[in-house]
Amino acid sequence: MQVRLAAEPLTGSGMDALLLRSLQTYVLGTFGSAKWQEVCSLADHPSQMFEPMLHYSPGLADRVGDIVSRVLGRPVEAIWEDVGTYLVTNPDRDGIRRLLRFGGVSFSDFLHSLEELPARAKLALPDLDPPEVLLDEVGPDRFELRCRSHIRGIQRVVMGVVTAMADDYGALCLIDTGADDCITIAVLDSRHATAKAFDLAMPEV
C-alpha cells in the first residue's frame, strides 16, 4: 500500500498550514461542508482536513485559495480578506482577537505592534515562517503596511484582520490597497465607537 504524506514535517511551511486551516474554518463555517468537499477534491486532499500544527508544502495555501475562488466564483483577494476578517470576528476563535489586542491599548498602538508580531509569534512557534511586516507612518494618522511572504494571500488576510481590528478598537478608518499592493490605512476617528470589551485576564474555560 502506498502511503502519501500530505504534510511535510521538515521542509514544509507552518504559515501555509495556519492559512490552510483558517481557509478551511472559513469555508466550512460560511459555505458549508459540500463546498469544502468540492475544494478538497479539486485540491486532491482526501483527508479534507488541514492541521494547523503541521507543515505543508510552501505555496499550497495559495493553490487551495485559488481553488476556493473558482468553487465560490469570487476573486481570490476577496476570499483571503474575508478569511482575515473571519479569524478576528468568529466568536469561536476569540483567541486570535485576544492575541492581537495584546498589541496595544489603542488602534494606532495596535498598528505599530504589527511589526513586532512576527517575532512574538516565533516565541510561541519557533519554527513558524511568519511574513515580514513593515509599517510606515506616512503622515498624521496615515499608515502604509507591507507584508513580505512567499504566500501571495497573506497581504489580503492582513488587510481583513486590520479592518476587523479597527472595528474591535472602535476606530473609524479608510483601509485600501495602495501603490505596489501595500495596505493604506487612514485613521479618521480613533474613538468613533466603543471598543469591544477586552480583559487582560484570559476568560476561564
Partner: peptide
C-alpha cells in the same frame, strides 16, 4: 512587559490546545 507575558501565556495555551487536538 505585562502584555508580552500575557500574550505568550495565551499563545502558548492555544498552541498546546491545538497540539492536544492534533
Amino acid at each position: 512587559l505585562v502584555r508580552e507575558v500575557l500574550f505568550l501565556a495565551e499563545a502558548n495555551a492555544s498552541v498546546t490546545s491545538e497540539l492536544r487536538g492534533l
